[in-house]
Design a protein around this nucleic acid. Structure first.
Length: 295
DNA sequence: CCGGACTCCTGGTTGC
DNA sequence: TGCAACCAGGAGTCCG
C-alpha cells in the first residue's frame, strides 16, 4: 500500500524526467482512473496536450505536478490509492495490461519519455485540479482536492505543537487519529502499525489519555519509520509497488508488526496478533502494547 | 465531533 | 481442474 515513503520515491524519481517536459499525447485506457477529474475525459486529454510540467510536489500521499505555472493555476493531481504505480517508460515500450492512463511527453534535455499510470484496483486516480492557497502559509499553493489534507510529519513546516494539541483534544483511538489525513498525513495501515509497535502503544489507546511524552515518542517513531522506509526506497511486501523505473522496492524483512501475526514479537518474543479494526487489520504485540490510563 | 456502514475495485488466494 | 467466495484497504460520503 503506497504511503508517504512510496509516494515520495515516485515523486523524486519523476522529478528529473518530467520537470520542464511538454505533453505530446495522452491515452485513456480506463476512464475510471479519472474519477477525481470533475470534467469529462476529453477535457482532461485536451488540457494535458501541450502542457508543460513544473517540478512535482507532494503532501502526504498526494502528488501533484503544476502545469504551466506562469499561465495557469492548474496541476495534475495523482493519488496511488491501494495499488497505483507511476512508471517511466521508453516511448516505444510495451504497455502493461493494467495501464489505465499513458502520457507521452518530450523533455528538452532527455528527449521523449512516457509516463504510465498503472493501477490494478483503480482506487487511485489522476485529475487536473485548480491550485488554491493552502491557508496555513501565505503563498503556499495546493490543489483544491488536497486542501483539507494536513501537512505530513516529514514536512519542515509540520507544526508539532499544534499536532499534540489537536491530538489531545480528540476523543478517539490513537490509530484512528494516525490514519486521519486531516490531522497528520502520509501514514497508512502499515506504518501506523509499525510506529505504534515501536512506541509500545495499543491501537485503540484513547488519544485523550495519551500523555504528552508518549505522544512525542509516537511522533518521533512515526518519523523514524517513515525515514527508514524512505531510505530503503519504500515498502511493498506484495510487490504491488514499483518505483518509477519499474524496480521493485520492497523490504518486508524490516517490518516488526505489520503482517507478522503468528510470529514472535522482535522485542519480547510473544506472539504478534492481528485484529480487525476500522475495516482493516491491526497487527500488534498484546504484551508490549497495552491500553493505558492517563500515563 | 464521533464512529459505523457503505462505496469504489480486481488479482491472487483459498476452499470445495 | 474449475469455479466461486473471499480478502486486501485509501478515501470520501452519508447517517445516526
Amino acid at each position: 500500500m503506497p504511503e508517504l515513503p512510496e509516494v515520495e520515491v515516485v515523486r523524486a524519481g519523476l522529478e528529473p524526467a518530467i520537470t520542464g517536459a511538454t505533453v505530446t499525447a495522452v491515452q485513456i485506457f480506463d476512464e475510471r482512473s479519472l474519477r477525481r477529474h470533475t470534467a469529462p475525459a476529453e477535457d482532461f486529454v485536451d488540457r494535458m496536450i501541450g502542457s508543460t510540467f513544473a517540478a512535482p510536489r507532494r503532501r502526504g500521499k498526494f502528488l501533484w505536478v503544476p502545469v504551466d505555472p506562469s499561465r495557469t493555476d492548474s496541476a495534475l493531481v495523482v493519488h496511488l490509492g491501494m495499488s497505483g504505480q507511476v512508471l517511466l517508460r521508453e516511448p516505444d515500450a510495451a504497455v502493461d495490461r493494467l495501464t489505465r492512463i499513458s502520457i507521452d511527453m518530450t523533455n528538452p534535455e532527455h528527449g521523449p519519455v512516457r509516463v504510465d499510470f498503472v493501477d490494478q484496483r483503480i482506487f487511485g486516480s489522476m485529475a487536473l485540479d485548480t491550485l488554491v492557497e493552502s491557508g496555513d502559509l501565505p503563498g503556499d499553493l495546493v490543489p483544491s482536492q488536497v486542501r483539507h489534507i494536513a501537512r505530513d510529519p516529514m514536512d519542515p513546516n509540520f507544526d508539532d505543537a499544534r499536532f499534540f494539541t489537536r491530538l489531545a483534544a480528540r476523543n478517539t483511538g490513537i490509530k484512528r487519529a494516525l490514519l486521519d489525513q486531516t490531522l497528520i498525513s502520509g501514514i497508512g495501515n502499515i506504518y501506523a502499525d509499525e510506529a505504534l509497535w515501536a512506541s509500545r502503544i495499543h491501537y485503540d489507546q484513547p488519544t485523550s489519555a495519551l500523555s504528552r511524552p508518549r505522544a512525542k515518542t509516537l511522533l518521533a517513531e512515526v518519523r523514524l519509520v517513515l525515514g527508514k522506509a524512505l531510505a530503503e526506497g519504500g515498502t511493498s511486501f506484495d510487490a504491488q509497488y514499483l518505483n518509477v523505473n519499474g524496480e521493485s522496492g520492497y523490504f518486508s524483512h524490516s517490518l516488526n508488526a505489520y503482517g507478522q501475526q503468528g510470529l514472535p514479537c522482535p522485542r519480547c518474543g510473544r506472539m504478534i496478533v492481528r485484529e480487525q479494526f476500522m475495516n482493516r487489520g491491526s497487527h500488534f504485540c498484546p504484551w508490549c502494547q497495552r491500553v493505558r490510563g492517563a500515563n
